[in-house]
Nucleic acid binder design. Structure first.
Length: 546
RNA sequence: GGGCCCGUAGCUCAACUGGAUAGAGCAACGGACUUCUAAUCCGUAGGUUGGAGGUUCGAGUCCUCCCGGGCCCGCCA
């Protein structure tokens, strides 16, 4: 509908002011005004044209509106607020839109123009179970993926497995130490080892599988423990994600980068470009040439590569795979890391804007007014699994999208469990169930939805619903292009609210007005469909009964 | 000390990248069930958008400076 109005305005501008002014339409706003008096749609085009033509906005608006009011899709076109053009749609237009909603994939568009985008999210180290913060990133990435898919992008989903380096070694040592402990042998627990309960469980399990393990040389036993822990934890991570309804196209191994010599290769490439140097025994990348605060170490003086080194190789790999855009979803505590990775991308001949980073802010859990604490090191962190079991997957997914990704999220467990109106998940689901119930009941009474008399749907509430449904198309575009999946939950709450308002004011089924009833059934079926689609994109259930 | 993010109703957040009189939900108060699901709806109240300047037809949004809060600043990941 936005596209529609835009097109009509373009035509009018072309006719009245000439082809060379048409480009201004692209910069103009086209939106639904907050106030009903301002009609169904409004544009500020005349203000922009005024600047260019050095004429009064009001005059330009008046000329355009005269032209536009001739069109059958508009009931009236008015000038207000010094130059805003307000459009009021005709009943024919509502009928047309409603049919589109009911009968087509109206929410699918192609603003992405087939852009190949690699979405990387979660990417948790396989050194422990997923915590709630990972879950938030997972849902953000997952819903963004679905929205991009529906708006014409060509996204792919990837999980980067940090299965190399110190952390994994530390995991092995931690398990080893716990095994020693179980056998009452003296062995110091590593300083910054993983202290969570799950390490003890892994130790027990490994001892059962390999009773001889502690008789092996320590180094070999630790290696086995590392591999074992990594495998088990990755399995657990995959199970958790599956439970959460989050999937990936690729699981990309950091270790694989080393095994294929890609880290060596990318460093050689940087070397050839003269971007590496040695200092104090370490190897540094001149990231300062590309806007970073200081140069960064890629190989430590002890010969080990840094995490940064493999990350450079990883992003180079992404570039080589031909993605037009890479979007990484990271925890907000990594934000200081962005400049150096962007610098690395540039050092490799890429554009820093090729990489986009979405930062996920902290999730705090509240229960009974008390914060449920989490701290990975101490080992008493709140796992994603615990939360899913506590409140259910629907609530987890929906609640994670109740705030923009870069705002800290307070997750109210009591609220998520409450079957009351303040719980937004129920609010939206209830709207869906309510509609299904009416449609079922109509069938029993022999009433069928019909598009024969849709022009009878002329009340304020009905028009709001029709437009409201159609807006899903644009909300998805906003989700995808602005990378803001939380908009979808807000959209659904808003649509549900419109529905409830309609429901309380009008009766759908009225035996004495069969024509109006079947038109309303047609309408609410379209609303039901729209809510269902929205919930499907969120991967939240749309129950038929509650 | 340097850098990034944030500050909007009592609380939690919106505001379509500069548009019209800043909107919702909780919480508060007052109403609506012999009716298709009251897990709902309607109404009332609530604001100097942290503060001060600036840019322009127009600023919560952009610029500068203050005040307050969070995060990052390792040869950790």
């Amino acid at each position: 509908m936005k596209e529609f109005v835009k097109e009509k305005v373009s035509d009018a501008v072309r006719e009245l002011l000439g082809e060379d002014k048409v480009h201004v339409v692209e910069r103009a706003s086209f939106e639904k005004p907050k106030k009903k008096e301002f009609g169904d749609f409004a544009t500020n085009i005349s203000f922009l044209l005024a600047r260019e033509l050095k004429r009064k906005p009001f005059e330009i608006a008046r000329e355009l509106s005269q032209k536009l009011s001739e069109l059958p899709e508009f009931e009236k076109v008015e000038v207000a607020g010094g130059g805003f053009i307000n459009f009021t749609f005709s009943q024919d237009f509502y009928v047309k839109i409603l049919k589109e909603v009911a009968e087509t994939d109206f929410y699918v568009s192609d603003i992405g123009k087939g852009e190949k985008v690699l979405l990387e999210y979660v990417s948790a180290n396989p050194t422990g179970p997923l915590h709630v913060g990972h879950g938030r990133g997972a849902v953000v990435g997952d819903v963004l993926y679905r929205a991009m898919k529906l708006t014409g992008y060509a996204p792919e989903r990837e999980f980067y497995i940090n299965d190399a380096g110190r952390q994994i070694k530390l995991l092995g040592v931690s398990i080893y130490a716990r095994m020693k402990e179980l056998k009452k042998e003296n062995y110091p627990f590593p300083e910054d080892g993983y202290r969570g309960e799950y390490i003890k469980e892994l130790a027990e399990k490994l001892l059962k599988e390999r009773p001889d393990i502690l008789e092996l040389p320590e180094e070999e036993a630790v290696e086995i423990a590392s591999e074992f822990g990594k495998r088990e934890l990755l399995k657990e991570i995959k199970e958790d994600l599956k439970e959460l309804g989050v999937e990936f196209d690729n699981w990309f191994s950091e270790k694989g980068l080393y095994e294929r010599g890609e880290v060596e290769r990318v460093l050689k490439l940087l070397e050839e470009k003269g971007l590496l140097y040695e200092k104090e025994g370490a190897l540094w990348l001149k990231t300062t040439l590309f806007g970073d605060d200081k140069d960064r170490v890629v190989r430590r003086s002890n010969g080990e590569y840094t995490y940064f080194a493999s990350d450079i190789a990883y992003h180079y790999n992404k570039m080589e795979r031909g993605y037009e855009k890479a979007i990484d979803v990271w925890g907000a505590d990594h934000h200081g890391y962005i400049p150096r990775v962007k610098a690395a991308v540039q050092a490799l001949g890429g554009n820093p804007d090729w990489l986009e980073v979405i930062l996920i802010q902290l999730v705090k859990l509240f229960k009974g007014g008390q914060e449920v604490k989490m701290s990975k090191r101490a080992g008493n962190f709140v796992t994603l699994r615990w939360l899913m079991e506590e409140v259910g997957v629907d609530a987890v997914r929906f609640f994670f999208l109740l705030k923009r990704h870069d705002t800290p999220l307070d997750f109210d467990i009591d609220l998520a469990l409450s079957a009351k109106n303040e719980n937004p998940v129920y609010y939206v689901q209830y709207a869906h169930a309510r509609l299904c119930s009416i449609l079922d009941k109509a069938k029993e009474r022999g009433l069928e939805p019909s598009d024969d008399n849709l022009k009878l749907l002329s009340s304020e509430e009905e028009k709001e619903l029709i437009i409201g449904c159609y807006l899903l198309r644009y909300e998805l575009q906003a989700v995808a292009s602005r990378r803001e999946p939380h908009r979808l939950t807000y959209y659904l709450i808003d649509l549900a609210s419109k529905l409830h308002r309609f429901y309380n004011k009008h009766r759908v089924m009225d035996e004495s007005e069969k024509e109006l009833s079947s038109a309303r059934l047609y309408l609410i079926n379209a609303v039901r469909k729209t809510i269902k689609i929205g919930l499907d994109i969120l991967n939240v259930n749309a129950p038929r009964r509650m």
